[in-house]
């Protein structure tokens, strides 16, 4: 009977069609309770290349090594918790598919740069949020409050539409070479969020925010290297926004 042969052929076909491949995750581990040095550690993982880097990290944390530490919250590119340096480029682990970053070679995963690493892929975000708070990222108005909502034309809304997309993941700020060398610089993310209010027709504190960014460590430290624009997982034209703030400062028109 030829059936067993058929079965065998079918079985081989099935294994060939398996979506799983072995991908090596090369993760930069750091644990201050063990050593003051960071170490690269390799984890081979069976994974479907159509899955994301975050899924690979989950597999490692849940099945291989529970001490692996990283931030993630929504896992769908909205909360901005899992920005990390994947293959040397800042990305969101939850928006990066394995197949898009050459799974043939080891995938390097490390913490974002320029902020103090607390453990593995977790960094101290406090300086980043301090810069964010310093640009007053809230609506400031003068005069009496309207009885209804503050209306705005579609064109006025369009003016700052790009910078409303920011999720504060710090991918831009931690890709900025000026920020790496001097954390006193506001960084792209803070300027983007200042831009969002400076060019908002309903807001009245644009002048004040411009004055804050006119400072020694404000927009004039930007060297337009475009690292931030490349890094932004939301596709915000970050460098353009910074340049628009510079132009507004020179012309004082916004």
């Amino acid at each position: 009977m030829a059936t067993p042969v058929m079965d065998k052929a079918e079985a081989t076909a099935k294994t060939d069609a398996s979506p799983y491949i072995t991908v090596t995750f090369r993760i930069r581990r750091f644990n201050p309770e063990v050593s003051e040095h960071a170490v690269w550690e390799d984890f081979p993982v069976e994974i479907d290349p159509k899955e994301r880097v975050l899924d690979g990290l989950h597999k490692i944390k849940w099945d291989v090594d529970g001490t692996l530490t990283f931030r993630r919250s929504c896992a769908h590119g909205i909360c901005g918790s899992d920005a990390m340096r994947i293959n040397g480029k800042n990305r969101l682990a939850c928006k990066t598919l394995i197949k898009d970053i050459n799974p043939e070679k080891p995938i390097t995963v490390e913490a974002i740069k320029g902020l103090t690493v607390l453990k593995d892929l977790v960094v101290d975000m406090e300086p980043f949020f301090q810069a964010y708070r310093d640009v007053m990222p809230f609506l400031v108005t003068k005069g009496n409050e309207p009885t209804r909502e503050r209306l705005q034309s579609a064109e006025d809304r369009e003016r700052f539409d790009d910078t409303t997309k920011c999720i504060l993941c710090a991918a831009c700020t931690s890709s900025c070479p000026v920020f790496w060398n001097d954390g006193q610089y506001f960084g792209p993310a803070a300027i983007v969020n200042a831009h969002r209010f400076i060019f908002d027709s309903r807001d009245d504190a644009g002048e004040q925010r411009l004055e804050i960014l006119n400072d020694k460590d404000g927009v004039w430290r930007c060297r337009t290297t475009f690292n931030c624009t490349d890094a932004c997982p939301r596709g915000i034209e970050v460098t353009k926004a910074i340049q628009e703030v510079k132009r507004a400062l020179i012309t004082r028109r916004f």
Binding site: R29, F30, H37, V39, L68
Partner: peptide, 22 residues
Amino acid sequence: AVGPVEGGHVHDVDNPAPLIEP
């Protein structure tokens, strides 16, 4: 979890390694 480091583990929970500040 972290590979062997020269000189063994001198740091533990009570004696954590210094964090390098940017």
